[in-house]
Amino acid sequence: MENLYLAATADSPEVDFRFDTHELALKGESYPENAAAFYGSIIHQLRDYLAGCGDGTTITVDVALIYFNSSSTKMLFAFFDALNSAATRGVRVVLNWHHDPEDDTIGDFGSELHDDFTALEFRDLPTVS
């Protein structure tokens, strides 16, 4: 399936999903007016891609978001839920969670993902910006 690339805008992150090499990245700020619409189509494509991934596939997900609003948070949760479902049936998913070590909100959200989505290989990566 075709790779998905969306350039960052003032209120939405860069989406760089290289399905061919199993590398997915989200980077930037996220507070679009309609987060459900923005992430809805991304999650839809992610699900299609995951459906075609078999055991032995390793997917690397790099998330480096510096801010996301409440409605994006909800959609991100659904995004990680889809990855976790794939991981529970044998796909290896490595989640690199990049964040400013001083940003408690994003650090806490990472911990929650770690607690909830136990099939993901969660790597907490505090990086000084």
């Binding site: 309609n34 987060a35 459900a36 609003n69 409440s70 409605s71 948070t73 909800k74 959609m75 949760f77 909100t105 929650e112 909830d116």
Partner: peptide
Amino acid sequence: QDTLRSEQPEGSKGAGLGFLTVARD
């Protein structure tokens, strides 16, 4: 945390998390 894991409330265009986010901050 509970709201984050629940279904989107009816009539909400966000996630029902807006005021909780503000209260948290």
